[in-house]
Amino acid sequence: MLSTRDLVLCALFAALLAGLGMAPPIPLGFLPVPITAQSLGVMLAGALLGAKRGGLAVLLFVLLVAAGLPLLAGGRGGVGVLMGPTGGFVLAFPVGAFVTGLLAERFATGANPLRLFGTCVVGGVAVVYAGGIPWLSLVAGLPLEKAALGSLAFVPGDLVKAGVAAVAAAAVRRAGVLPAVHA
C-alpha cells in the first residue's frame, strides 16, 4: 500500500516532470543544443522512486497531459498530442520509468553511476523508443525500419540524458535522503 509520503513523492515527481518541461532548456557545456529535460525526469523517477512509485509518478504526469494541461515541453498537451506521431513516446514514459525502477531495484541499488546509467539506458531510452517507434510507424504509415532510422537522430541526446540522470541519481543516493526503495 502507498503511504502518505509515497503519494506526496509521486505527485512531486510528476510535478517535477511538468516543471522541467516549463523551464527554459538547460545549456550543457559540451553539447551545442540545450536539452529539454522531460525524459530525464522519467529516468530519475524510475531510478530514485523504484518501479511502482516511479511508474505511478510518470503515469500521473501523462494523465494530466491527457486531461488537457499543456505540460509537455513547448506547452503542448491534450489527447491530440497523445494520438499524434510522437504520442507513442509519451505513452511509453510510464513504462520506461517502471522498467528503469525495476532494473534499479535489482542491479543498481547502490550509488554506482555506471550501473545506474545502464538501467536508465534500458528503461528510459530503449523502452521508450520501443513504444514510440511502432506508434510513429503506424501514424505516419512508415515502414518500421524507417521510423526507427528517423528516431535514431535523437538517441545521442537521450544517451547524454541517461548519463546526467545516472550521475544525479548516484549523487542523490549518496546524500542519503532516499526512503527505502524496497518499501
Binding site: L7, C10, L12, A14, A15, A18, L64, L69
Partner: peptide, 18 residues
C-alpha cells in the same frame, strides 16, 4: 488525491527549478 496534489505542486516545482 495524487492528481490534485500534482496540480498544486507544479507551480511549486517550477519555482524550485527557477
Amino acid at each position: 488525491l495524487m492528481l490534485a496534489l500534482t496540480i498544486r505542486f507544479i507551480p511549486l516545482l517550477a519555482e524550485q527549478v527557477r
